[in-house]
Computed example of a mutant assay.
Amino acid sequence: MKLDKTQLKLFLLLIIVFCFSFSCSENKIVKDESSNSQEKKETVQGENKEESGKNNTEENKTEKKHLSQSEEYIVKGQDKEKENFFDEAILYFKKATEEDQKNAKAFYYLGIAFRKKNDHDQAVQALKKAIELIPDFAEAYLERGIAYQKMKDDQAALGDIKEALKLKPSYPEAFFWLGMVYFDKKDKYTDALEYFTKAIEMKKDYYEAYYRRGLVYKSMNRKTEAMNDFLKTIEYKKDFPEAYTEIGIIYYSKKEKEKSFEFFKKSVETGVPYANAHYHIGLILYERNQYQEAVSELTTAIKLNPVYAEAYNQRGMAYDKLGKYNEALSDFNQALVINPNYSEAIYNRGVIYYKTK
């Protein structure tokens, strides 16, 4: 069949339309597939991102858990330390350092616990670690200085305490411990006074500094100033038996026996056990010829301080007055075991030997 020109044009137009429609349909399929692929890709990426975020969150939670666990051990250790259970405190502080080896505070408290347990070498090592982690840790320098002072290493103690003051110039506790280092040096009382005074100027209610400065004044035979500082001590710390006892000793040295006895009794009434107070009560009771009561007080002193040579000697004298020579001899012998050069106990033992020969 022969097509005319019009029919031929129409036929070609139909072919073009068909081809165009087919091409568009194919592109749409490809586009849809591409779109579906992209959606799947985004979904997978989203899932991966969510999973990654979840993992990061878990890691953060784990890290926080470790940190909080370390801090929790520190709190438990501090509670035990306050109760003077130093072995248990040390275990908790060690656990804190194991949980977080970069926790300087954990090593710091571990050092304090070791020091209070009188394990000064271990204290120094723990505090050294705290300082390595935080080089400007003034409190750690001070604590290590205190440990050195307890070890009688005055040079190292002074170095650390002065470093603490360099880092923290207004640090009354550091001045106090400088005073403590110099207090042990009999020819350095003036330096000790200076540093205790600085501590008091910075901290008006620093009762320990008043007490220590009072002891310095007492050693320098400046009794009035010593008395004032001991009175200041009990003004800020009512249950401080040592200060009451020192006031009693000053009154005793002035022959004011009734006044001294009053302060020795106040020392006992604080409820804080203190052997020296019981010893001085026993001494005055002996002078009052109340020998059995004296024995009772001196026995308490010995229970509180089993190496109290003066208390054994004084109780021996009371036993002698009661005619209990065997007990007296035993006490004089024990006094001499503690202090072989105790001349008064040697003399008193000789008296018993003479009486019982």
Results as ranks from 00 to 15, higher is better:
L178Q: 05
L178N: 10
L178H: 11
G179E: 07
M180V: 03
M180C: 07
M180G: 09
V181S: 04
V181G: 05
Y182M: 07
Y182S: 02
D184R: 14
K186C: 14
D187Y: 08
Y189Q: 11
T190R: 13
T190Q: 14
T190E: 13
D191W: 10
D191H: 15
A192F: 11
A192W: 02
L193A: 03
L193S: 08
Y195Q: 09
Y195P: 05
F196E: 06
T197S: 14
T197M: 00
K198Q: 14
K198A: 09
K198S: 09
A199M: 06
I200Y: 01
I200W: 07
I200P: 05
M202T: 03
M202D: 03
K203T: 01
K204E: 10
K204C: 00
K204T: 11
Y206M: 10
A209V: 00
Y210P: 00
Y210G: 06
Y210C: 05
Y210I: 09
Y211Q: 09
Y211R: 02
R212I: 05
R213T: 10
R213E: 08
G214V: 11
L215E: 09
L215P: 03
L215M: 14
V216G: 04
Y217W: 11
K218I: 01
K218W: 12
S219T: 08
S219P: 06
M220D: 07
R222E: 14
R222K: 13
K223S: 14
K223Y: 13
K223G: 11
K223M: 15
T224R: 08
T224C: 01
T224M: 13
E225S: 08
A226G: 10
A226W: 00
M227A: 06
M227W: 12
M227T: 02
N228K: 13
N228D: 10
D229A: 02
D229E: 01
F230C: 00
F230G: 04
F230L: 11
F230N: 08
L231G: 02
L231D: 11
L231W: 01
L231M: 13
T233C: 03
T233F: 02
I234V: 09
E235G: 10
E235K: 04
E235L: 09
E235P: 01
K237M: 08
K237H: 05
K238H: 07
K238N: 06
D239F: 06
D239G: 12
D239E: 15
D239M: 00
F240Y: 14
P241E: 04
E242T: 14
E242Q: 15
A243Q: 07
